[in-house]
Design a protein around this nucleic acid. Structure first.
Length: 583
RNA sequence: GCCACCUUAGCUCAGCGGUAGAGCUACAGUUUUGUAAACUGUGGGCCGUCGGUUCAAAUCCGACAGGUGGCUCCA
């Protein structure tokens, strides 16, 4: 109970901070127009239309004034108004965005309420804002506030609307909590995949090809290990991998509908003096493959898998690290099923995803079921049955999920798995989508046991999502210290001095023959330095060999994860459970 | 694409009107090392690019490029 009360409290406190910020902004710019100022995780923001662009120094000034307002211990007073009177009032003070908001609320028949900030001594009204509420009683109850950053944001989130200036802030009950939060942000930066990618020599970007990753040898090992893992699962789960072209005549995209809806995102190329494009997704290629041979109901479910590289010409501002790139590889598959096989196949996909997310990587993830959007194709019954199938499968798999109403693809509903990065931004990774439309567009058929022709349903699914994005999240998840099967260098042999290089090489050869990714650090450095270097590159096992090991014909093994050292025979080390691949 | 900020050696960063610095890395030598940094020396930069202001620009202004944080979009 007290926990719940506390949560409401901090929400109210953060919301109150937004009002205090708005008051400070109005003092700095009396002509400022207020938009909205909600709470968010760890804080709040407020959008303003201002006479000039804010500079970082403004934040310090505003923060100072906020502290004054807090010190004044202004009272929050609620007052309700009829909609028309509210509009009249807001027009009189020139708050056009608020007028628009009230007009919306009026339609919904909601009560219109205002919150006033009143001075405790003389009752002078310092600030008033349209607000649904939940505020503290007094500004003095606000704990520790810090304004974090300025950003642009469109009014009502629509790019056709004017861009407002958004101020983000964080607020906590105490200074200690605030400091702890700031410290956590610093820690999170150390996990950032872009930083670790460079530090560990995994990948780089280059100005010459913005949005496309150069995987360095070490990063390529991780990439390929992920592929090997998937391929081994594909074998068990009866997927058929294909290799497909990258460039296609625009005729294909016209048939699939991409030319109409997705053209700006496609890299156009010239082929035989005809318009063509690099593929942004695999679906049409797989439709073509499906049609290359006559299909019978005995062929279904047909699971076609593809690791082809995809290109999407994302706008510059959307690019960022490996989470949003222009060239990427999906662990993509299109599964062709008869309608009655749909539910089972969705369950198979979810089971596969669950295995990867929980058993292999131990991720914390959230699942969303996205339902029919306003603009959609297909019949009511198809949508209902597809949504039902997805929901049933999630329940059977015992996966909690939230419903994202109206957020499905135009061709069908979908399940998304989302994972947070180190800065707590959510990224969609796995997706399972039901599609009734693509088979119609491509006139896909199969011969049923009844001797008649039927149309299959397509399940689009990717489990890692894009390998680039997945790797980014993996790097942050493990903070660069990968499990042995993914580690670019699994074992590093450290001779105590040059005298033991021969033994080190001998041992290393055995590791190599056992299939391990191993190296000898025979640099002219002290053992301490070699250990430090190995620690910094997060190698799972360091093998120290010197006089003792040569004499006893054994190894001293230092474990990165536990930081413990253990003396053991070479065979004993090679038999370690942790060295085994999960596939 | 929109708003703001950032860009100095391979990496991390200092310098912020008087003409370039540190640590790590790299290379060479000395040292032969026992669990998170041995010592000495040497390299390495058209200070993102192009224009402008100035006697003088890494430093001020502008454009462009790339990056970062948001918005829109999205795997």
């Amino acid at each position: 109970m007290s926990k719940i009360e506390k949560k409401v409290d901090i929400e109210a406190m953060r919301h109150s901070c937004a009002h205090v910020l708005a008051q400070a902004v109005l003092r700095m710019f009396p002509e400022a127009k207020l938009a909205i100022g909600p709470t968010i995780e760890n804080g709040f923001y407020y959008d303003f239309d201002l006479p000039r662009t804010l500079i970082p120094e403004d934040l310090a000034l505003l923060e100072k004034d906020m502290k004054n307002i807090i010190k004044q211990d202004q009272r929050f007073v609620r007052r309700e108004e009829p909609a028309d009177k509210a509009i009249e009032f807001l027009q009189s003070i020139g708050q056009k965005y608020k007028v628009e908001l009230v007009e919306g609320l009026k339609e919904g028949g909601e009560t219109i309420s205002f919150y006033e900030n009143v001075m405790p001594n003389d009752g002078k009204v310092m600030f008033v804002d349209l607000c649904r509420g939940n505020h503290l009683d007094r500004t003095g109850e606000i704990g520790a506030v810090k304004l974090m950053k300025i950003a642009g944001a469109y009014w009502k989130g629509d790019e056709k609307n004017p861009m407002l200036q958004r101020i983000y802030g964080t607020a906590w009950n105490t200074k200690e909590e605030l400091d702890e939060h700031l410290k956590q942000l610093e820690e999170a930066k150390k996990r950032d995949h872009r930083r670790l990618g460079t530090a560990l020599g995994l990948f780089q970007f280059h100005d010459i090809s913005p949005g496309s990753v150069f995987f360095l040898p070490k990063g390529t090992i991780i990439f390929n290990e992920l592929l090997s893992f998937l391929r081994s699962e594909y074998r068990k789960r009866n997927y058929k991998e294909v290799v497909t072209p990258l460039v296609y005549d625009k005729a294909l995209w016209e048939q699939s509908g991409h030319w109409e809806h997705y053209k700006e995102n496609m890299f156009q190329v010239n082929m035989d003096d005809k318009e063509a494009s690099l593929k942004p997704m695999n679906c049409p290629s797989h439709m073509l493959i499906y049609k290359m041979e006559t299909k019978s109901y005995r062929d279904l479910p047909l699971r076609i898998a593809d690791f082809a590289m995809l290109h999407r010409n994302e706008v510059r501002g959307a690019l960022g690290g490996m989470t949003r790139v222009r060239k990427f590889c999906m662990d993509d598959s299109h599964i062709f099923v008869a309608e009655e096989q749909l539910e089972q196949e969705i369950l198979n996909c979810i089971d596969f995803a669950k295995y990867i997310y929980e058993d292999i990587f131990d991720f914390t993830y959230e699942v969303c079921l996205s339902t029919r959007p306003e603009k959609s194709m297909g019949t009511e019954e198809q949508w209902a049955s597809a949504e039902k199938a997805l929901e049933k499968a999630l329940n059977k798999a015992n996966i909690p999920f939230t419903i994202n109403a109206g957020d499905g693809a135009f061709y069908g509903p979908k399940i998304d798995f989302r994972i947070k990065d180190s800065l707590k931004r959510e990224w969609q990774c796995a997706t399972v989508q039901v599609d009734f439309q693509m088979p119609l567009r491509f006139q896909l058929e199969f011969e049923g046991s009844d001797g008649k022709s039927h149309t299959p349903v397509v399940v689009h699914r990717a489990l890692l999502g894009s390998l680039e994005r997945f790797m980014a999240i993996l790097i942050e998840h493990y903070a660069g210290a990968f499990p042995v099967w993914l580690a670019p260098v699994q074992v590093l042999v450290l001779p105590v001095s040059e005298k033991f290089n021969d033994y080190a090489n001998e041992v290393n050869k055995k590791f190599f023959d056992a299939g391990l990714r191993c190296e000898v650090d025979d640099s002219n450095e002290t053992l301490g330095k070699k250990i430090r270097n190995a620690e910094m590159s997060k190698v799972p096992y360091m093998i120290v060999v010197g006089e003792k090991e040569v004499a006893d014909k054994n190894l001293t093994v230092r474990d990165y994860a536990t930081k413990k050292q253990e003396v053991m025979a070479l065979e004993e080390f090679l038999a370690l459970e942790t060295l085994k691949k999960p596939y």
